[in-house]
Structures are given as C-alpha cells and as structure tokens.
Design a protein around this nucleic acid. Structure first.
Length: 500
RNA sequence: GCUCCGGUGGUGUAGCCCGGCCAAUCAUUCCGGCCUUUCGAGCCGGCGACCCGGGUUCAAAUCCCGGCCGGAGCACCA
C-alpha cells in the first residue's frame, strides 16, 4: 500500500471513529477497506466454546461484517497431547459461530494442512533461517537466558534438511530434536529468541490419527496460515502479543507483510470463578456438573440453554470493546442486555417456590384474566381464583396478623391466623392495597403443575398450567426471574434460570 | 530477574495518536420517584471518575519524566 492510500484510509478511519462514538458498534478498524478485510478466529477445540470464545467470534466476525469482508474459522489443533483437541468440539465451534450470527466463510483445520507447513519449513531450513536443535529444554534455556547461540545454530542447509528428513522418517525420539526459527539470540526480549517451530510427538491425533509425528507449534502454523489466507487483521487476547514479534521473523524471511494486530486483556466475570476447561471437565466427570451445558457454566451451550439471545451476548462484548486493559465485569451487564430484548416478548406467569397453602374465608371462586405481557393488552391467560391458594413462603412470612395484602389480579385478603394459615376475604378491587410489596403472586390449589427451576441454585415449586403453551420459550416468572422452559414430561416442568 | 503493555465514576466504556469544543460520552450497578396490580420486571430522574508527583504550554485526561499499582510473555501449550 502506498503512502497516499494509507493517508486516505487514515483520514476515513478518523471520521468513522468520530461517528461511531454515538452508536453502539465497534470502533473502526485501522487501515480497513470495505470488501478487503479478512478476519479469523483461531481456537483450539480442546473444549466447548465459552463466553471467552464468544468474544473472539463476535469481535472478529463483526469486523468482517462491518467491512463486507471474510471471516475464517481456523482450528489451531496442532498439539495432540498437551492441548489435545476434543473431536465433538470442532462441530460445537461451527454451531456456536452460526448461532452468534457469524457463519464462517471458510473453515480451516490446521492438523489437516501439516504438509503445507512442512514445505515452508523446508524452505527456511534451506535458507538457513531455521535449524534442527538437539539441545534439551533446560540446555537451551541457559543459552536463551545468556543470549548465546547454541552449537546447532550454524548447521548448514544441506545437513539441516537431512536431519529434518530423518525426523520425518521417525529416526528420533520425542524431545531429541526440534526445529528452531533463527531470530536473534541477543534480542532484548528473551521471549523472542530462537523459538521452536516443530517438535516430535508420537501420539495419535483425534482428527488426523497417526498421519504425523512432527507437529508445528502454534506460532509456526499460525504465521503460515495467516499469510496463505490473506488475513488482514488479527484480533486476539494479549497472551499472544509476543507471537507477533516471533512470527515477524518468518514474514521478514519470506518478504511477506504482517497483518495488523489488536489485543484485548483478560476478562474476569464475577459470577464465574476461575474456570479452566480441564477443571470443568474434571468436575463434570466427578458429577459436580451435569454436563457442558450445566446452567452454572459459562459455556455457550449453557447460556443458550438458559435462553440468552445471541444478540445480547453480541451487545455485551461490543460494549467491552477491544482494549488491552483487563476487565472484571459482572454478568449483570449481560442480563441487562438480554432483558432489553426478552422483556417485550416473554410471557408472564406465576411460579410459586416453596409453596405454602393458605385458606381464604368468605371468598367466591372466580376466574381472573391476567395479561400475558403488560405491554400487550390483547393477550390473556386465565387463573381460577379459589378459596385455597398457594403463595410462596417468603411472602407468607413477611406478613403479620391483621395485615392486608393482595393476590395479584384476584383479591385482597387479611391474615387472621398465621399459625393456621387462615385469611379472610376483604375485597376484589385494588382499593385498599396500593402498590408494591403488598401485591403478591399466587396459584389456585387445584390447578398447578410441579415445576423445578435449575440454575446456580435449584428452586422447587408450582407453576400455573398455562405455562405449557410456552414450553421451549423464555418466560418471566413474575417476581422471580426470566427462565427458559425446557421440557414437560407429563409430570414436572423443568425450567432453566436465566436472570432476574 | 529480563522484556512488553495498561491505569477515566462501584463496574465496563468513549475521548488520548493530532493539547483548547471535556466543569469528560454511553451503558450497567446503586439511590430516589412513577406504574388501576411484577418495589426481584418496566418507565423517569439523580449521585458518582481522568492513579500520584513533577515538567512542557496561554491551555494537559490528552505530550514528557519519575513513582505507585495492575497485567502479559520469557514452554518441545494454545
């Protein structure tokens, strides 16, 4: 790109930046040209996609959309041991990308393209920009720390290729030899000094089985792929910030242009402690969680099960932006985003947890019509008001004898005998009871279904029968929370707690 | 220890590159009010921030230096 177009782009970038401030969108991308942007999201599928993955999918996918560009999903699955991929997880990533609204234009499996990486390392070997190194990890660390070149560094190209061939032929044991990229052993940042590009691992790979035993490291694989795919911008976590400086050496040797990079900091979500994929896996195996979609987990499967809208997750991450600061954020922000979407369409129902039976003296049974959604005056559900109702224990305990409270949309009653849970009818009209905490929800004695709500805590109780019209949907249990009704087996309704 | 990065209300975030329009944006939380019926929803309103110290300048959140605090990398992991 020449200086003039660069300057033009920069001006445009500044203008867009100003405009974007008002709207809810990602800040414009540096040097991005409509139609020419290529973004990628490159996970290792060693577990299911989580909220963290969602950030990668959304930020990269969204930029691709903003600039009518291309979005690539690439599986960086080149370690069959330490970061062993999980076969089912490949599809999970594809599904979740689609669910979030970013269907990949292309899907790349690094493990299937290992021969391509071989071609490039052979070139580097021949150019003497890479070399086989027989140092042990510990030995090499000493050289690295001292900034001294190791004895294998000046192996000539011919010999290097010979050794490489022997590696491929299986003549070496694991750990005996690796291929290193020449950088600069005196580079002021020790993290950059001659890094490993290939190592030997005799382990069957979940996807490509026993096809290879010489595997590239992330830095090598990623460097080659980004160039081959014409990736223009890389946005990822700041843990990979040094990758750029390492990989730039390869780009320099081949005369390629490195993509523009941007990094985000660590995200800590208050509600989920420290959760590692391997830790969760153990807990699932131990029975602590029901599976990867356990509603207490930060996986996208779990969030979807709880009824979160993809749009809400998107807005949540867009609001975090892309800054290198570490953020500690609360799920309350996600809840707020989801509520904005779901509030208008979620039907309202009564769910009485820890039900307490209460008798009402002097009331006449009568059907009451209650709006399904307060914003919609035309849709109703019907409850059969009767002389015996259930209310939640939390409410019951709050009231004192003599106090009047209202069963929402039914009638006002006075508590006369708390020990025997007896009340008396006062009136039907809203009248006496104004608003607020004296209006509670309730259920008629003989017209309910058992309902269990699964979430960070488990709630057991009763729900009105009308909910059966909404199985599969997100509803609001009034004065409780938004929940997704998962299934009804004829006996009991299972709902998943979404958020207040 | 070595290298790099960052610090704006309780929490995120915009502004910083190109100093003045910033007595600082937006969202969320919290608090208060409203709602012929959710005080665990909704609607309206309010409180609340430029890490500290120097310097440059007519002018600093913005530039420079130092300090403090936080983070990342220094793997034959990604």
């Amino acid at each position: 790109m020449d200086d003039e177009t660069k300057a033009k782009l920069l001006d445009k970038y500044k203008e867009e930046r100003k405009e974007e401030v008002k709207t809810k969108a990602l800040l414009p991308l540096k040097n991005a040209e409509k139609g020419k942007v290529v973004m990628r999201f490159a996970p290792n599928p060693n577990g299911p996609p989580t909220l963290g993955s969602a950030r990668g999918i959304i930020v990269n996918g969204e930029y691709a959309k903003m600039y009518d560009g291309k979005f690539i999903l690439r599986f960086d699955d080149t370690d069959p041991r330490t970061k062993r991929p999980m076969l089912e997880a490949y599809d999970w990533y594809v599904e979740d990308c689609k669910w979030l609204g970013y269907e990949p234009d292309e899907i790349i499996y690094a493990s299937k393209r290992i021969p391509i990486y071989y071609e490039y390392v052979e070139k580097l070997l021949k150019m003497e920009k890479a070399y086989p190194c027989f140092c042990s990890k510990e030995e090499f660390k000493k050289f690295r720390d001292k900034g001294v070149e190791c004895p294998h560094r000046d192996t000539d190209g011919e010999k290097a290729l010979e050794i490489w061939q022997e590696m491929l032929d299986g003549k070496y044991k694991e750990g005996e030899v690796v291929i290193r990229i020449k950088t600069d052993m005196k580079h002021k940042d020790p993290a950059i000094r001659d890094w490993v590009a290939f190592r030997i691992i005799y382990e069957s790979h979940p996807l490509v089985k026993d096809s290879f035993h010489v595997y590239p490291t992330l830095d090598f694989e990623s460097a080659i792929e980004d160039h081959l795919n014409g990736v223009t911008h890389i946005i990822r976590g700041k843990d990979l910030i040094d990758s750029e400086r390492r990989q730039r050496f390869i780009y320099k040797y081949f005369g390629w242009e490195y993509p523009i990079t941007k990094h985000w900091g660590r995200v800590k979500i208050h509600e989920f402690g420290k959760l590692s994929t391997s830790g969760i896996r153990k807990d699932i195996e131990a029975g602590k969680y029901s599976g990867w979609d356990d509603p207490r987990l930060p996986t996208l499967k779990a969030l979807r099960r709880r009824g979160f809208e993809a749009e809400a997750i998107k807005n949540f991450f867009i609001s975090l932006g892309v800054s290198e600061n570490d953020v500690a954020v609360s799920m309350k922000n996600l809840y707020a985003e989801n509520r904005k979407i779901v509030d208008a369409k979620a039907n309202r129902y009564f769910f009485v947890w820890n039900p307490v039976e209460v008798r009402i003296e002097g009331v006449e049974a009568k059907e009451v019509k209650i709006p399904l959604n307060p914003n919609d005056a035309n849709r109703f559900r019907v409850l059969k008001g009767s002389d015996t109702v259930y209310i939640t224990k939390d409410d019951f305990e709050m009231f004192k004898e003599g106090e009047i409270f209202r069963l929402k949309d039914f009638c006002n009653i006075r508590l006369i005998d708390k020990a025997n849970r007896k009340t008396e009818f006062v009136s039907y009209e809203l009248g006496e009871v104004k608003k607020g905490k004296n209006i509670i929800h309730w259920l008629p004695k003989n017209d309910t279904i058992p309902c269990v709500v699964l979430g960070f805590e488990k709630y057991e109780g009763l729900a009105e029968k009308n909910v059966l019209d909404d199985v599969g949907n997100v509803v609001q249990f009034e004065r409780f929370a938004f929940c997704r009704l998962e299934k009804f087996d004829g006996e009991e309704l299972v709902a998943i707690y979404a958020h207040p």
